[in-house]
Simulated scan of single mutants.
Amino acid sequence: MKTAAAFVLAAANLVAGHATFQSFVIGGKDQGQHFAIQTPANGNNPITDVTSTAMVCNGGKAVTDRVEVASGSSLTFQWHHNDPATVSGDNDEPIAASHKGPVMVYIAPAASNGEGAVWTKIYEDGYTGGKWAVDKFIANKGAITIDLPNLAAGDYIIRPEIIALHEGNRPNGAQFYNGCGNIKVTGSGTATLPSTGVDMTKAYKATDPGVLCNIYSGLTSYEIPGPKVWDGASSGTAPAPTTPSKTAAPVSSSAPSQTATPTVIASPSATPIKEAEPATPTESQAAPAPSSGSGSTLPETFTIEQFISWLKTTTSTRNARRAHPRAFQL
């Protein structure tokens, strides 16, 4: 009985509960009703024949206006129940609550006029967590927001779509609502659409599980009809920079400080370092003993200047050339 009552309610909303795509919203600003939009030829009536040419752009007349939107940025499609919209007092604004189903968005090159296998799916939302995409659509007051792929700059036709499944339990009962609009993508995006897409008159079959679907039968999952979302649409971020970001090099703990005091050279340790030759140094070849005085001997701790002075003094003797090297301590 509950299922039958649900179908009766759905039938009552058959005429009253429709919707149409009416404007673009970019950066929070509505671009104007019907601006750059192909207004449907049959009002807000649904399409039930999935092979109809109305599946392309709902019979809308081509327009030359375009809205500019940056590659990779957000784009919103604003829908309303009536045209012109009468939001106040309209219980079916933006669509009747019974019209549950998925939401999808397709895009095609503008030069194609949407004809043939030129459409690429860039967004879809179906049934998750017990909530339909249309439920979110109603909560968002008829707004569908997506992130564009990082498309190369150019002109495109974009097509949002809703499938209402309140009568989807029978063949040709599912109701399709779509509309087309013209966008000019700007920016430095590089992604190009696949060379072959889908023909919207062949994208669905009347027997597809996502089309012939009884939503009142204890549904726990839902298979969105049509092609998969294009993998080039998986990211809404701007293209990565061509030059990697630079990071500061780590500071070595052994690097000298810029404020360090002059280097001090220490005298040799108690055990002198032996020279390569001769193997056993003689007593006369030993380095002068450390001393606290000045002149021909070095103090225990001395500076570079003292060491140079000592060298000059000792070069006059024969043993100066054979003096033991001293340890330099930084």
Rank of each mutant, 00 (worst) to 15 (best):
A4T: 07
A10H: 04
L14P: 01
L14K: 01
G17D: 05
A19S: 11
T20Q: 12
I26C: 07
K29F: 04
K29T: 07
D30W: 03
Q33C: 02
F35N: 09
Q38T: 04
T39N: 05
T39L: 04
T39V: 07
N44R: 12
N45S: 05
P46Y: 06
T48M: 05
D49G: 14
V50R: 02
M55T: 12
C57Q: 00
N58E: 01
G59H: 14
G60W: 05
K61D: 00
R66L: 11
S71T: 14
S74V: 08
Q78W: 03
P84I: 14
P84Y: 06
A85G: 02
A85Q: 10
D90F: 11
E93I: 04
I95D: 03
S98L: 15
K100Q: 14
K100P: 01
V103H: 02
V103M: 14
I107R: 06
I107Y: 15
A110R: 12
A111V: 08
G114S: 06
E115Q: 11
E115C: 01
E115H: 04
G116A: 09
W119Q: 12
T120I: 05
Y123H: 13
T128R: 00
G129C: 11
K131L: 07
W132M: 01
A133K: 03
K136C: 08
N140A: 11
I144A: 02
T145K: 13
T145M: 01
I146E: 00
D147K: 13
D147W: 03
D147M: 08
L148K: 00
N150H: 06
Y156V: 05
I158T: 00
I162V: 03
I162W: 04
I163F: 07
L165Y: 15
H166I: 07
G168T: 09
N169W: 15
Q175D: 05
Q175L: 08
Y177V: 10
G179E: 11
T190A: 15
S195Y: 03
S195P: 00
G197C: 00
M200I: 06
K202Y: 11
K205C: 02
D208N: 04
P209Y: 02
P209H: 01
L212P: 04
I215N: 01
S217P: 05
G218K: 01
I224K: 00
D231H: 06
G232F: 11
S234A: 15
G236K: 00
T237F: 11
A240T: 12
A240V: 13
P241E: 04
A249G: 14
S254A: 09
A255V: 04
T259N: 13
A260N: 04
A270S: 15
T271F: 08
A276V: 13
A279L: 14
A279G: 08
P281D: 09
T282N: 14
A286F: 05
P288S: 12
A289D: 09
P290T: 01
S291V: 06
T301Y: 04
I304A: 14
E305P: 06
I308S: 08
S309W: 01
L311M: 09
T314M: 15
T317Y: 11
R318D: 09
N319R: 15
H324D: 07
P325A: 06
R326A: 06
A327H: 07
A327G: 08
F328R: 12
F328E: 11
